[in-house]
């Protein structure tokens, strides 16, 4: 299956990247090549249910419910301007909840 320019443009939109037309066209070709290589590969139907983890032995790390303030507030907002009350101002979003 081919990836066309339209798909690249859509991906660019979803990924918040600007992709000029010539680049989109080149990428569409490249990506289609990569997919073609996959077309030629046969896959055995997967066996019993594996977990998605690499060694299958991993579990989500857990922690106790303790509130601990972060020790270095300064390091958190490196040079980002904050309003007097602590809010961060960003350019307006187009749509609102």
């Amino acid at each position: 299956m081919k990836i066309d320019e339209k798909a690249i443009k859509q991906a660019a939109d979803m990924a918040r990247l600007i992709v000029p037309d010539e680049e989109a066209s080149a990428l569409a070709q490249e990506f289609s090549q990569i997919l073609k290589a996959l077309d030629d590969i046969n896959v055995n139907p997967a066996g019993e249910n594996d977990s998605d983890t690499a060694s299958g032995k991993l579990e989500s790390a857990l922690r106790e419910d303790e509130a601990k303030p972060f020790h270095d507030a300064e390091g958190l907002f490196q040079g980002i301007a904050r309003e007097k009350d602590g809010h961060i101002a960003v350019p307006r979003v187009l749509d609102q909840e």
């Binding site: 690249i8 991906a11 990924a15």
Partner: peptide, 9 residues
């Protein structure tokens, strides 16, 4: 950027 785009596709 290339990988992000491919990954998004």
């Amino acid at each position: 950027r290339r990988r992000i785009l491919f990954g998004t596709c």
